[in-house]
Design a protein around this nucleic acid. Structure first.
Lengths: 129, 129
DNA sequence: TTTGTATATACTCTATTAGGCATATACGTA
DNA sequence: TACGTATATGCCTAATAGAGTATATACAAA
């Protein structure tokens, strides 16, 4: 179980990540909020930690877990090749944009994209349902 | 195996989706390009089809498969809650933007985002590594 | 030191899944 | 009709992951 995708395929792990998205949490806090047996939480946290999704620091007997951003990017990068298919590109873009804007520093000049070879639009040659 | 994430967790399925991202393909074409036994391809296509990632139309004995965008969005939507953690927001945004721009119709006026309640930044209270 | 709390880990069991192979089905063509 | 091609499906097996339970470890407080 190594790929980013396998890691986030597990629902409990996504739940944990979701929790950590709001703020860092100890194992016990996760355990209680998600009503999950402690060993289950610890095991999933181990997977997440080894996969680079979270990191932990020690606080007495407790371990405080928080998110690390990098791996999420990989998912986003993978999605990139499919964004062209979303019907309401612009809407999606705007949502994305606005969301980011909430935290943006004054934006540097917009670097214009180097035109990528565009895969030809489907020919639909044989289409006869 | 129902969730979007479980579907894309399988490497061969991601490979198939990747292929279809460039253009629609028949089962045989996928089989050859990915050097994958035909039953394997068909089975994965079935999973992808039933999950709504692809759709097919009949062309004589062949089946032509192509992407459907909707499910990919779900992944993107899930990612949303984590975007705030990406360090170089703006860069990511710009890349996203430029990529989309390649196909955008003249853009409608930018709708400004309704400010969402922002989860308080991590307090780092117990931090003592 | 003993006890309690917080977390990690080892072990076992079970369910799920992907692959391989054989075969069925559908369509076209001779 | 018989045959070839394209695709789907059924059956079996092996591998793996997650849950449950028990236990180990680390720290703190009495």
């Amino acid at each position: 179980m190594d790929s980013v995708f396998e890691i986030i395929a597990e629902p409990n792990r996504r739940a944990i990540l979701g929790l950590l998205a709001s703020s860092e949490q100890s194992v016990g806090e996760i355990e209680r909020q998600l009503r999950m047996p402690q060993p289950t939480v610890s095991k999933h946290l181990r997977v997440l930690r080894e996969a680079g999704f979270v990191e932990s620091t020690v606080d007495a007997q407790r371990r405080l877990y928080r998110l690390r951003p990098e791996r999420f990017r990989e998912v986003d990068d993978w999605l990139t090749q499919f964004r062209r298919f979303w019907s309401a590109h612009v809407d999606a873009l705007e949502r994305h944009l606005d969301r980011m804007d909430r935290m943006s520093q004054p934006k540097p000049a917009k670097t214009k994209a180097k035109k990528t070879t565009r895969p030809q639009p489907r020919t639909d040659k044989g289409e006869k349902k």
